Simulated assay, not measured.
Amino acid sequence: MDFDPSKFPTGLCEQMEPLVARVLAGNPSPYTYTGTQTYVVGNGSDRAVIDPGPAIDAHIDAIVAAVGDAKIRAIMCTHTHRDHSPAAAPLSERTGAPIIGCAPLVLADDGPRADESFDKYYKPDRVLADGETISGDGWTIEAVATPGHTSNHLCLAVQESGAMFTGDHVMAWS
């Protein structure tokens, strides 16, 4: 990698706009660049966590710290690559929040392929269909079905601000 990781501190909550904060996971690689970006949506009594990232204890601690005293209403995943969804289960166990978002990945055949990058343990409590929404205190997130990067990929749009979380569909660095 051709970047200085010290310029991208992990575990800090950075406010991106009034309804959106970001926490960077400590998993830099050629596929994640500086690390997986986890987003916390909301500024009222509850929050949504989008793409909780890898199951790294320090990252899960940082997400919980970013949420503070608010309740996590939903843990949302755009897709099930191992850098986006594995922290969903331990974060759910720790907070009691449901896992809501994309469907588990279903592979259509037993032919040759590379499955290693997929989170085969992802189990959502609720799968969002295209156009379906979930709301909290001052925020509404709409699912936008966007298969392509993976067959189960969703983008998630915050209706109040226009922010859209594209998972890996848009990566400015690649």
Score class of each variant (00 low, 15 high):
G44K: 15
G44E: 13
G44Y: 12
S45H: 15
S45T: 15
S45M: 14
S45Y: 09
S45A: 15
S45K: 15
D46P: 01
R47M: 08
R47G: 08
R47D: 13
R47K: 14
A48T: 09
A48G: 06
A48R: 06
A48F: 13
A48V: 09
V49N: 04
V49P: 04
V49C: 09
V49F: 08
V49E: 02
I50M: 11
I50D: 08
I50N: 09
I50K: 06
I50W: 02
D51K: 11
D51H: 14
D51V: 15
D51I: 15
D51Q: 15
D51Y: 12
D51G: 13
D51R: 12
P52N: 11
P52M: 09
P52H: 07
P52W: 03
P52K: 10
P52S: 10
G53M: 10
G53L: 06
G53R: 08
P54R: 02
P54F: 00
P54S: 10
A55L: 07
A55I: 05
I56A: 10
I56S: 11
I56H: 14
I56K: 12
D57W: 12
D57E: 14
A58W: 07
A58K: 14
A58E: 12
A58F: 11
A58Y: 08
A58H: 11
A58L: 14
A58N: 14
H59V: 14
H59Y: 10
H59P: 07
H59W: 07
I60Y: 03
I60E: 05
I60W: 07
I60M: 04
D61T: 01
D61Q: 05
D61V: 01
D61K: 07
A62G: 01
A62M: 04
A62Q: 03
I63Q: 01
I63S: 00
I63L: 13
I63E: 08
V64R: 15
V64L: 14
V64F: 06
V64I: 14
V64Y: 12
V64P: 12
V64S: 12
A65F: 05
A65T: 07
A65N: 08
A65G: 11
A65V: 06
A66I: 08
A66M: 07
A66S: 13
A66C: 06
A66K: 08
A66L: 10
A66W: 04
V67E: 06
V67Y: 02
V67H: 04
V67L: 03
V67M: 03
V67D: 02
V67K: 07
G68F: 03
G68H: 05
G68Y: 05
D69L: 06
D69H: 12
D69T: 14
D69V: 11
A70L: 03
A70T: 01
A70N: 06
A70E: 04
A70Y: 07
K71Q: 13
K71N: 08
I72S: 02
I72P: 00
I72M: 02
I72T: 06
I72F: 03
I72Y: 02
I72H: 04
R73L: 11
R73K: 15
R73E: 10
R73V: 09
A74P: 08
A74T: 09
A74H: 12
A74Y: 11
I75Y: 02
I75H: 02
I75R: 00
I75Q: 02
I75A: 00
I75E: 04
M76E: 00
M76L: 12
C77D: 00
C77K: 02
C77V: 00
C77R: 01
T78W: 00
H79D: 11
H79Q: 11
H79N: 11
T80G: 03
T80F: 01
T80Y: 03
